[in-house]
Simulated scan of single mutants.
Amino acid sequence: MNRCLSSLVRLLPRPEDPPPAVDWATAEDTLGTPLPSDYKELIDVYGGGHVDDYLLLLEPGCTNVNYDLLAKDSQRREAYEELWKYEEKPREMEEEGNRLIPWATTDNGEYLFWLVRPGQSPDAWITLINGEGGPDWERYDMTCTRFLASVLSGEIRSEVLWDLFPLAVHRFRPARSFLCPSPHGRFGDQ
């Protein structure tokens, strides 16, 4: 387990049952890029889920569609393609070939992304946060596990994320334990 994930595990209780295995090869093939090793470890330990009743940690192929990284990536790419016809992009997206991949979102509509640069190792990707699809962006030159551990420990404080996040006592609720809409419009425990 990497150092940042070890720090996070000390702060955020793990789910009682281990999450189902992720088909990383299919996820990476669908995204067209490898994913950071710290993120894969994070999902292998926690799976997708709700952190401190606010942050939705995304998981590739999650059975709860609201927590599916692949679905959110597709939605965000389409949304920003339209939005950036009329609004200014963050300066990091002005570089040719750069891409955003969401690794978390929130109940309020903020998104936490990796900044993907051509030729850069996924383990060097940094975190960008967008405030509710508007012009507010924050940059954190750190991995997703380091960001989560730093936020939950109080080491850093985001100006974009909700003022009441994180909670004083941290909790994690696995996405697979929630009732959610299926892609076919039915509800069930998935």
Rank of each mutant, 00 (worst) to 15 (best):
E92I: 05
L8G: 02
P135V: 04
L128F: 03
W114P: 01
K89T: 06
K72Y: 07
P36Q: 08
E16Y: 05
D68H: 01
E82V: 12
D44L: 02
P90L: 07
P13N: 09
K72A: 11
Y140T: 03
A104I: 00
I129W: 02
T127M: 05
K40R: 15
V51C: 06
D136Q: 12
G48M: 02
D23A: 14
K85D: 08
G32V: 13
Q75S: 13
L11E: 05
N108G: 10
R99I: 04
G109K: 11
R14C: 12
P60V: 08
L112I: 13
I43W: 00
L56R: 11
W137P: 01
N108F: 15
T143D: 09
W103P: 00
L55I: 12
D123G: 10
T33V: 10
P19G: 08
W114V: 04
W125V: 05
D53Y: 13
V51N: 03
V65N: 06
L31S: 04
S37N: 10
V45S: 09
P19I: 09
P122G: 03
V65G: 04
E110A: 14
E28Q: 14
D44Q: 12
D53A: 13
P36T: 10
T143C: 04
E94V: 06
S7H: 08
I126Q: 09
D68F: 00
G97M: 07
E78Q: 14
L69Q: 08
T127H: 01
P135D: 13
P34W: 05
F113S: 00
R76W: 13
L57A: 02
A104K: 00
T33E: 04
V51R: 03
D107I: 10
S74W: 09
D17C: 10
Q120M: 13
P20R: 10
L42V: 12
T105Q: 08
E132N: 11
T26G: 07
R76G: 03
I101G: 00
G133M: 06
P18Q: 05
P60S: 10
D73P: 00
R99V: 06
